[in-house]
């Protein structure tokens, strides 16, 4: 086992990001889609913090902080929309939300 270089962190971040993209594209449950978005945001956070460690500056940490705050706001509003949707349609499957199709 060699030393852990920045490529290891970047590779982990890429894998997590693509798992998140897979979740958004191929899952139908809206909550799982939202959690996959959170996973993507976390992968991006990892990239920022890894590069901050590599260059020795702290900008990556500050940006990761902002990304987290934004993710919190977005999760809150996403859940509120979900709750309203569930109240009106009693479903959270993306397949059933076809009102505006055709």
């Amino acid at each position: 086992m060699g030393a852990i270089t920045i490529q290891h962190y970047l590779a982990l971040s890429a894998i997590l990001f693509f798992i998140g993209v897979f979740g958004v594209l191929f899952r139908r449950n809206l909550i799982v889609i939202m959690m996959s978005i959170e996973l993507m945001l976390n992968a991006v956070n990892l990239t920022f913090v890894a590069f901050a460690r590599y260059t020795g500056t702290m900008d990556g940490h500050v940006i990761a902080f902002f990304v987290m705050a934004l993710a919190a706001a977005e999760a809150g509003i996403g859940l509120a929309i979900l709750v309203m949707l569930f109240r009106n349609r009693t479903t959270v499957q993306a397949d059933d939300l076809t009102l505006m199709r055709d």
């Binding site: 852990i4 909550i31 959690m35 976390n42 956070n45 913090v49 940490h61 919190a72 999760a75």
Partner: peptide, 25 residues
């Protein structure tokens, strides 16, 4: 994050993400 010497981001991740956002979900 803690391995990458990012102590503040580590605490924030546990506090905000795992402790608040996921609890909400």
């Amino acid at each position: 994050f803690a391995l990458l010497n990012a102590e503040f981001v580590f605490i924030l991740q546990v506090l905000v993400y795992a402790g608040a956002i996921m609890v909400l979900i």
